Simulated assay, not measured.
Amino acid sequence: MTAYRRIKSCLPSARGLLVTVEMHRHAIRSDDSMVIVGVLRDITERKRSEQRHYLLSR
């Protein structure tokens, strides 16, 4: 059985700046154990680009 979840959030970077991240989590169950795998991806630039595109298209 595999469970999957995606979350978007703003988190502080090592330099103290807020960055927008997308987190993917997978919980994978085998016969007698469970493994949780998480991946964070910085999507700050993508969000800025989407905002610019939106403002220019108005």
Rank of each mutant, 00 (worst) to 15 (best):
V39M: 07
R58I: 04
R52G: 01
C10E: 15
R58L: 06
R46K: 10
V21P: 02
M34L: 13
T20P: 07
D42E: 12
G38S: 15
A3D: 04
R46Q: 13
H53P: 01
D42R: 02
L40N: 04
L18F: 05
C10H: 10
A27K: 07
H53L: 14
R5Q: 03
D32I: 04
A27D: 13
D42A: 08
V21W: 00
G16H: 05
H26G: 03
R25E: 12
I7P: 08
R5W: 00
I28K: 04
Y54P: 01
Y4W: 06
L18I: 07
I36R: 04
R41M: 06
L18D: 13
T2L: 12
R6F: 00
R5Y: 00
H24Y: 03
A3S: 11
R29W: 06
S49P: 00
M1W: 09
E50S: 08
V35N: 02
R25T: 11
R58A: 05
T20A: 15
C10Q: 15
A14R: 11
T2R: 14
H26S: 07
S30C: 08
I43M: 05
V35H: 05
M23W: 00
H53Q: 11
Q51L: 13
R46V: 10
R25N: 03
T20C: 14
V39D: 02
K8L: 09
S49T: 09
E50V: 08
L11N: 10
M34R: 04
I36F: 02
E22W: 02
R46P: 03
S9M: 11
Y4S: 03
A3R: 14
Q51T: 15
R52Y: 03
M1T: 07
E45T: 12
R15K: 07
Q51E: 15
V21Y: 01
M23R: 13
R41V: 08
M23A: 11
M23Q: 13
R25F: 02
R6D: 01
T2S: 09
